[in-house]
């Protein structure tokens, strides 16, 4: 007797839960050979709104944790991912038609990237902040602080691309609403399962799947979003329009050129979404 397939329903990841799209829509995702693989949720603007709400609610708790603790949490994602490498390698091969060796390289790079950013959690403040010399009887300190809710348009690479944009945003204390890669959305939901079962509080990472041209403008114009990362936007006109929308409430915008994701990253993914707080403190009594 043949066993019936156990088919998986890929949903969204909002506030630590896996809801279906409010719109009830889905779209078909094909594997690398063009055959039907599974359906992914087609998120609507209302899902984006709900995700921002969840991210805002999570921001207070997440940003007030110690940097050391946030580093541990990001490291924990790497641990869980390490345990599930075979699943991710298989998904990458199906999604992109990679060879086994290549898939392993990407999964390992993604895990290493998480560990790398986890290490930065309690060190970024020393690099970007510090004591300033001033002409007066004051201590003067600068310290980096997270911006708030960051909208992220993830690049098309299914795993490494996603990890490379999420980890730097959350490790500094921001919370995120991520629009997953449009052609390869399924791995992002598998990664969401990793997040849900590691120690990442619900709402710190929210993942939407669907067309970026439909969802991204709502996030770019949302007055309660503090920054937007346009890494995954390849259409120049869309990117320009998103930048214009983002200007309304002075969002921090990151619009990089083409990047080699396997290369060691610079710090700018973290620093773009940090704000510097400087305090003056009288010296002596």
């Amino acid at each position: 007797m043949t066993r019936i397939d156990v088919r998986k329903t890929y949903k969204l990841y909002i506030g630590g839960a896996f809801p279906r799209s409010e719109s009830g829509r889905s779209y078909a995702v094909n594997d690398a050979r063009g055959r039907f693989w599974a359906n992914a949720s087609h998120a609507s603007r209302k899902d984006a709104r709900d995700a921002v709400k969840a991210a805002r609610a999570a921001f207070g708790g997440w940003s007030s944790r110690t940097a050391y603790n946030r580093g541990q949490v990001v490291y924990r994602i790497a641990e869980v991912l390490e345990d599930r490498r075979e699943q991710f390698e298989a998904e990458l091969r199906t999604a992109e038609g990679l060879t086994a060796a290549k898939a392993r390289t990407y999964v390992e790079a993604a895990i290493d990237r998480l560990v790398w950013y986890a290490g930065w959690a309690d060190k970024i403040a020393q690099v970007t902040g510090g004591a300033n010399q001033v002409a007066g009887p004051y201590f003067n300190h600068s310290a980096p602080e997270p911006s708030g809710v960051i909208a992220v348009v993830a690049p098309s690479g299914p795993l490494l691309g996603l990890v490379s944009v999420i980890a730097p945003a959350i490790v500094t204390g921001n919370t995120t609403v991520v629009i997953a890669s449009e052609p390869h959305p399924l791995t992002s939901i598998t990664l969401a399962e990793v997040m849900a079962t590691s120690d990442v509080p619900g709402g710190v990472v929210n993942i939407l799947t669907g067309p970026q041209a439909e969802i991204a403008p709502w996030l770019a114009s949302h007055m309660d979003v503090n920054g937007i990362d346009l890494t995954g936007v390849t259409d120049d006109e869309l990117a320009r329009n998103l930048e214009i929308e983002a200007a309304e409430n002075l969002k921090r915008v990151r619009r990089p050129g083409v990047e080699d994701l396997l290369a060691p990253p610079a710090l700018d993914r973290m620093t773009t979404f940090l704000e510097t707080k400087t305090v003056w403190h009288p010296m002596g009594i």
Partner: peptide, 9 residues
């Protein structure tokens, strides 16, 4: 305005 608002306002 056609854009989502936030509690800050």
């Amino acid at each position: 305005t056609g854009r989502y608002s936030g509690p800050d306002y």
